[in-house]
């Protein structure tokens, strides 16, 4: 049991980075950005290729980040300059990335067994693999949280938040909303690619299919975090995201343990997110129901 939980914790920490990326677009920019399903693979692919060529794993993560920035840039340009609806812009980039990711990897799957990854250092110190992932994952999540907390307090960060909140008002205050949207999408996908790079190294392979469902997993984690751990201010929100991602992994580990076939996981997640997103509808339905019941008395 403890093994299952620590496994869930380690995976949750890595996915927390993806979750933060999804949160930036979904909540801050109010865009559901499907690019993440491709950029997570891009991150994994770039890191895997770099590491197998002997490049330092941290540098490989930096390169993965750059790859994610470019993915976000493309979606941003499609959406703002070419006026393609954001959902469709994300899908177009995602489809294009499939081929690009294959080109980066040269094949559908790259193994990272028997090469040095970011986790090797701690493994050499005597920690087991899961513990090493937890240490690295926590370090990354907390530092990224700190950086984002700073960034969204700066003038540019505030301009991005204002754009997502009320683009009309943002323009009236002299903000170039095209640029802020592009920048937001770039940062989001950059983070997702970092997540992809770390996930690939922890599972010891990069795979062309590993992005399927990433957006839904990210959304599930965002919502779980908001519902269970609150959303008072930006800092507590970022922490909630991390806790949400971990909770999601714990839930998944438990339902698998209870005997749900692994193949049904995505369906399970999709239904969970659908229910969570429709909660406001149910809530208002129940309120009306209550009222009408009271009247009937």
């Amino acid at each position: 049991m403890l093994q299952i939980l620590s496994g869930a914790l380690s995976l949750g920490l890595l996915w927390a980075i993806v979750t933060i990326g999804v949160y930036l677009t979904y909540r801050i920019l109010s865009i559901a950005d499907l690019t993440v399903e491709g950029s997570i693979v891009t991150g994994a692919a770039i890191a895997a290729v770099a590491i197998t060529r002997g490049i330092n794993p941290y540098l490989a993560i930096g390169l993965a980040f750059l790859g994610g920035l470019v993915a976000g840039l493309i979606t941003g340009l499609l959406h703002t300059k070419l006026k393609i609806p954001s959902l469709l812009a994300g899908i177009l980039t995602l489809i294009g990335l499939y081929s690009i990711n294959l080109r980066i990897m040269g094949r559908a799957n790259i193994s990272l067994l028997r090469v040095n990854t970011v986790y090797t250092f701690f493994e050499n110190l005597g920690l087991d693999h899961t513990m090493s992932v937890i240490v690295i994952g926590l370090t990354f999540v907390l530092s990224l949280t700190g950086i984002l907390y700073w960034f969204f307090g700066t003038e540019i960060g505030c301009a991005i938040r204002a754009t997502g909140d009320n683009p009309q008002m943002a323009r009236a205050q002299g903000i170039n909303t095209n640029n802020t949207i592009i920048l937001g999408l770039m940062i989001s996908n950059g983070l997702v690619s970092i997540g992809g790079a770390l996930i690939a190294q922890s599972q010891s392979f990069a795979d062309i299919q590993m992005g399927i469902g990433a957006i839904v997993i990210g959304l599930a984690s965002v919502i779980i975090g908001e519902v269970l751990f609150g959303k008072r201010n930006f800092y507590s929100r970022l922490i909630s995201l991390m806790l949400g991602a971990i909770t999601y992994r714990v839930i998944i580990a438990l339902v698998l343990k209870l005997g749900m076939p692994a193949n049904d996981l995505k369906l399970f997640t999709a239904i969970t997110v659908a229910i969570a997103l429709s909660l406001p509808v149910f809530r208002s339905y129940f309120i009306t129901l209550k009222k009408s019941l009271k009247k009937g008395e």
Partner: peptide, 28 residues
């Protein structure tokens, strides 16, 4: 239409004070 609902009063004013200025990495 005129304000950002999820941002604080002072944050909205700060956005307005920077109208026409380059926005950089100093505090909002």
């Amino acid at each position: 239409m005129g304000t950002a609902a999820n941002m604080g009063i002072e944050e909205n004013l700060a956005l307005a004070l920077r109208r026409g200025q380059r926005r950089g990495l100093s505090w909002g």
